[in-house]
């Protein structure tokens, strides 16, 4: 048996162990990032679930000024705390639009009445169609979209108080 053949198993083992060590030290990121960052928001036109609130379409995102698009739902528990942080952002001049996933008008109204309403517009996405088109895989998520309608940043999970500076700087960069 040649030397190469005899040492091959050992070399293979070292390679496999190196791979496994890397995985143990870098746990897999279970978040699925949207590949649309840097690309324009897909065209959409959502119905308005609430009477007093304008509907939300992709045209509203190319108005020259960066906006924060927030994917939320009244049935989503982390959204309750997130909405308060969004309210702070709104008070600092951030324009926020909401996409309500799989939700009912009455539930959305009650949710906003209870927790505050940071949204300029709200669109209703009853079968997650826009969510899928955006490459989003959970609720809540937020996208920073620049003034030309290009997605610049995706925030997975609730925007918490500690994330405010990050979101503001992303919005600043998108200007």
């Amino acid at each position: 048996m040649s030397r190469a053949v005899r040492f091959a198993p050992l070399a293979l083992l070292l390679l496999v162990i190196a791979g496994l060590v890397w995985r143990l030290s870098t746990p897999a990121d279970t978040n699925v990032r949207s590949r649309l960052a840097g690309k324009p928001v897909p065209a959409f036109n959502l119905a308005a679930p609430l009477p007093g609130k304008p509907a939300f379409s992709s045209r509203d995102l190319a108005m020259g000024r960066p906006r924060l698009v927030n994917i939320f739902a009244s049935w989503c528990v982390p959204c309750i705390t997130e909405v308060k942080v969004l309210k702070q952002l709104q008070s600092r001049g951030v324009a926020i639009d909401g996409i309500a996933i799989r939700d009912r008008a009455g539930d959305i109204a009650a949710f906003l009445a209870r927790n505050g309403d940071p949204y300029a517009r709200i669109g209703s996405d009853e079968q997650s169609a826009l969510q899928i088109a955006l490459g989003s895989s959970g609720v809540p998520e937020s996208f920073v979209v620049d003034g030309r309608g290009i997605i610049r940043y995706q925030h997975i999970g609730a925007v918490e108080a500690a994330d405010v500076p990050l979101i503001l700087s992303q919005l600043e960069q998108a200007r």
Binding site: V32, S34, R35, L134
Partner: peptide
């Protein structure tokens, strides 16, 4: 279309 959004992982 889905890979364009979520990557080849899907």
């Amino acid at each position: 279309w889905l890979i364009e959004r979520y990557g080849t992982w899907i």
